[in-house]
């Protein structure tokens, strides 16, 4: 159900762009207005989400630790997995964001001969890493369309990415690894019963959308050629606020652009917001210092406390008459 719906949604997006550009000649709508609107939705939605999260209180100090915290001097401390200070939190976050360290500890549970067994599961970590890094490199590589003079680091990145000089235009390795990664993430959802059980349309749709973006990009670069100079004119027009939308570029470019716009607009309102969310997770971004620093629940309001001393003051005479011991005579 979720798969069919997501698949239909992606096909509908492709169809919309195809009919809009090929049939109705709405080049300016799909080449300028939609991308601008999508970018505004992306920035606006991202800020809205982060601010909304920032306004929610964290009642408890809840870092999840993966190692020995601060204790006696003769007990070896694992500062990275149980960070005592902000510096170590930053180190832990860097490893988490760049290398998905906690996912490396991923386990799977299986029934084998009627027994529940647990084992290590590194594939998700490996393909997740491949997918995210490929996507980042592909994104950064696209800067050659957005800049008049392309900076050296991006040129070096391109040269390394097309290192094997296969075909013309040279095949980018990250084009292949991006598709490989997203395919694994999709297949995993479909064939593993437990994962499939908890998967809904919002899980399948981003995967299929990214797959469609990668596929249209690859088609455009290697198979259905488009006028690259025209593509760069569109990109430069967009970033210099003088949008142009020449009709001479193939429709596949407008489909690609529309799918990317859809991804950008969808981003802040979906699970993809883990881009911002990973930095906002109290289980990750808090130092494990609850024994050194008191965490005040921001929900707390001044509670009137009736102490024993006050109680005794109220009932001292009655307590004495009843023969109860009192602290103050």
């Amino acid at each position: 159900m979720g798969i069919a719906f997501s698949f239909a949604a992606v096909i509908a997006l492709i169809g919309l762009a195809f009919i809009g550009v090929k049939g109705l000649n709405l080049h300016f709508l799909f080449g300028a207005i939609v991308p601008y609107a999508a970018f505004l939705a992306f920035i606006g939605g991202f800020v809205y989400k982060v601010v909304k999260w920032g306004r929610s209180p964290v009642p408890f100090h809840i870092p999840t630790t993966g190692g020995q915290g601060y204790s006696f001097p003769w007990i070896k401390q694992n500062k990275l997995d149980s960070p005592p200070t902000t510096i170590w939190v930053i180190g832990r976050m860097l490893l988490e964001v760049l290398l998905f360290r906690s996912l490396f500890r991923n386990t799977k549970s299986e029934l084998k001969h009627g027994k529940l067994v647990y084992g290590s599961e590194k594939l998700l970590w490996l393909f997740g890493l491949i997918f995210h890094w490929s996507f980042l490199i592909v994104l950064v590589r696209h800067f050659r369309f957005f800049m008049v003079s392309v900076p050296l680091p991006i040129k070096i990145m391109e040269a390394l990415d097309s290192f094997f000089q296969v075909g013309v235009p040279l095949v980018y390795l990250t084009d292949l690894t991006l598709i490989l990664g997203v395919t694994y993430l999709f297949i995993r959802r479909v064939i593993m019963p437990q994962i499939r059980f908890i998967s809904i349309a919002a899980d399948y749709f981003p995967l299929l959308l990214i797959f469609a973006i990668g596929t249209t990009g690859i088609l455009m670069r290697y198979f259905i050629r488009v006028d690259i100079v025209g593509v760069k004119q569109v990109a430069m027009g967009l970033v210099s606020f003088q949008p142009v939308a020449p009709g001479s570029i193939g429709v596949i470019f407008y489909i690609h652009l529309f799918l990317v716009s859809a991804l950008f607009a969808y981003f802040p309102f979906s699970k993809l917001m883990h881009l911002g969310g990973v930095f906002m997770s109290p289980t990750r971004n808090l130092a494990n210092n609850s024994r050194m620093v008191r965490h005040i629940n921001p929900w707390n309001y001044p509670v009137h406390v009736h102490t024993y001393q006050e109680y005794e003051d109220d009932f001292r005479e009655k307590m004495k008459q009843a023969g109860l011991p009192v602290e103050k005579e």
Binding site: F42, I43, F46, V47, V50, V51, G54, R55, S56, P57, V58, F143, F146, M147, V148, M236, G237, V239, S240, F241, Q242, G276, F279, M280, P298
Partner: peptide, 29 residues
């Protein structure tokens, strides 16, 4: 809560996300 850190993070995000626009400011194409 922690508005200093969150706003700093948001500013970094916006600066990076708008790089294509800011890098091309005033450059004739």
């Amino acid at each position: 809560y922690d508005s200093g850190k969150i706003l700093a993070g948001l500013i970094i995000f916006i600066v990076i996300a708008t790089l294509p626009f800011t890098l091309n400011l005033g450059k004739a194409v």
